[in-house]
Amino acid sequence: MASSTNSAHEAATGVFPPFDPSTFGSQLLWLALTFAALYILMSKVALPRIGEILEVRRDRIEGDLAEAERLKQKTDQAIKSYEAELADAKQKAHNIAEETRDSIRADLEKKRAKVEADLAKKMAAAENDIRETKEAAMGHVEEIASDTALAIVTNIVGRTAQKATKDAVAKVVKG
């Protein structure tokens, strides 16, 4: 422990060093100087710089996140509009098909109706024809029958009872 160089505390060699008052002055002085220097360096250089770095990073990340959010929304919108358009197109296609089908059906219906009407008319005409023919034929039948009967009667009887024969024939034919 024999210290030879300590001019500052020769008087206090026996004192426990941390409590040696003779060193207080110098320690305080150097502490003040060094701590002041540290404080100035920290508050003027180091801390503003770190703060700025953190700030810039925060802003950057914030900005990137916002950008990501924006792009994501844009994408979502695009997808939505795409889907809406898709649905629209499908609906349209569906409508067109439906319309076409309807118009074709209507056309067909119309044509068929026309054909049927035509057919019905023709049928009616034909029936009419037939009836007329039949009626004409029937008229002829009476005449022929009465002629025939008259001839037979004349042949048999020899005299002609034209009116009676005619009536009788008509009776038969009608009866």
């Binding site: 110098s26 060094t34 540290l38």
Partner: peptide
Amino acid sequence: EIAFTNSALFMVITVVSIS
């Protein structure tokens, strides 16, 4: 008289290292 002691030396070292 201002003594530059080992204590002062380490204060300086501390501050210089931190900075």
